[in-house]
Design a protein around this nucleic acid. Sequence first.
RNA 1: CGGAGCGUAGCUCAGCUUGGCUAGAGCGCUGCGUUCGGGACGCAGAGGUCGGAGGUUCAAAUCCUCUCGCUCCGACCA
Length: 587
Amino acid sequence: MRYSRSLIPTVKEVPAEAEITSHRLMIRAGFIRKLASGTYTYLMLGQRSLQKIVQIIREEMNAAGAQDILMPILQPIELWEQTGRRKDYGPTLSCHVDRHGRTSALAPTAEEVVTSLVAAEISSYKQLPINLYQINTKFRDEFRPRFGALRSREFIMKDAYSFDATLEGLDESYRTMYDAYCRIFRRCGLDYVVVDAVSGEIGGSGSQEFMVPCSAGEDTILSSDKGNYAANVEKCEIGKRPADLAGEPTGELEKVHTPEMKTIEEVGKFMKVKPKNMLKTLVFQAGDKWVIAVVRGDHDLNEDKLNGLVDGDITMEIDAEAAAAGFAIGFVGPHVVVGRDDVTLYVDPDAVAGQFWAGGANDTDYHVKHFNWKRDVLDPLGEAVRQRVIVADIRNAADGDPSPLDDDGVLRASKGIEVGHIFKLGTKYSQALGATFLGEDGQEHPCIMGCYGIGVNRIMASAIEALHDDNGCVLPISIAPFDVEVISLNNDKEAVRNHADKIYNELTAAGIEVLLDDRDARPGVKFKDADLIGIPLRVVVGERGLKEGNVEIQRRTENKAAAVPADDAVERIKEIVNELKEALSPR
RNA sequence: CGGAGCGUAGCUCAGCUUGGCUAGAGCGCUGCGUUCGGGACGCAGAGGUCGGAGGUUCAAAUCCUCUCGCUCCGACCA
């Protein structure tokens, strides 16, 4: 490809909206341009990189026995209603109404479509297992699109779906995908970690995420320093922590006037109490009952964990109803459980101890000091305490917490970008949509499903996020838009031009993908652009070198060029390209 | 959705508070010349419905209202 005929709009300045490195570099290097919030055009360089990633995914998925299909982006909304997911997805599901008034969902994922396909076409255990996948555009009306390709409203996803006759079969399908994912990310040159995750709207019994560690990541990962446990903060469990409701009081319960002070920070500052000595008391509605969650002031509640403990769904953001039910919202304390039989308290172990506590007074504009679990909750409730006060892990894990494996491991927090997510789904969709088969026993059974996603654009963004330097992208050869950039440094000189052309033609004929910078630009401009774009190997053909009979070869990861006799250049380049590719080979 | 901010040349932004000349700068772009191994320099030039609509006024980029778009922040609040 000739640079002079290509649209590669590199820029020095970048719109203020690009906050993270990968976004900035993708704009600066001319990989993407924004059309509207959360939607991007991928220009030639970006598109070539995406296609490299797509190709790697295809090869590994096919090698793992999955079959490539293509499903519609327009999905009848009725399918989403049958599985109940229209409600679960809520406004994130983009919909389209056609001239006949039919509503279609713009695919954010395709469990419904693929399951209805299987429902129609699979009837016997002899046809299982099967794994169908596609690489296609997906839509999610994100609450807040941001960070360029990391969270866009429209993106490319590889989504695969396995159908098995048995749970053991599902385990094997899942394991096969796990292994394929490891190969895919390794071939893309990414460091990744696999963490336990929650399955969210997708549903199912278990899931793991493939994360690329980097500070710009939106997800928080907790890993045991023993190296044997890692989980997303949404999922991460916490090891055993001591909790004893019977500690003695630190003093008389003291009521403090705290007008209009509702946040932990405000109250703590006013009363001169640290957040770790305060109780955060949150009110949730569960049908006609109330659930009160108590965590330490410096901790965060994990609603998934709380939900898992409570019968039925809990609802938050119910200030008006809670106030009507007699709760002093903003000033609630755990002892509200005393004297109300419609309240169950869930308390995190770290919010229980014989130490000094401050918290809400259950009276608007008042807080209390010297709150004590034994005196103010345990003793008044008596025997009822067992049903009414439940001590359990209900908060997000934090850096320094004990590992749930109870092996003296300590959890450490870090950030990551989710590039892949694999789920054991079970029969949620196959039951809802009638994807059943006749087993060996002659009985009808629902297919047991798994699903497996990879964010194609996110691979590119996270690769740049993880692999760059001050001058630009440093892309691995497997996903770089080109293998080699040949710079015809003094393109106005015929000898230089001819030699660069010769190298370009010979490399191209050898199947190497080459970008030839044949622009009539000053050398500095060409060097800067080459660094920015980040093609792994740079070849400089210049008047100066050519006089000595040399051209220069430099890897993007090196900061000095090597002079090579011009006649040997093509062979030498081929060797290096092979070497670079070999280093990222799947084996 | 709530809060905040922004919208002026292709890009980055100034001008707006306190209304008043022909609306500016840097980068980029075009032409000519000098340069030519790490984003050169000089001269000449092109390029603007000041997001849109309405209003106030002798006069609006500037003040007011509405609207559209973009960006940032926002679980709970003991």
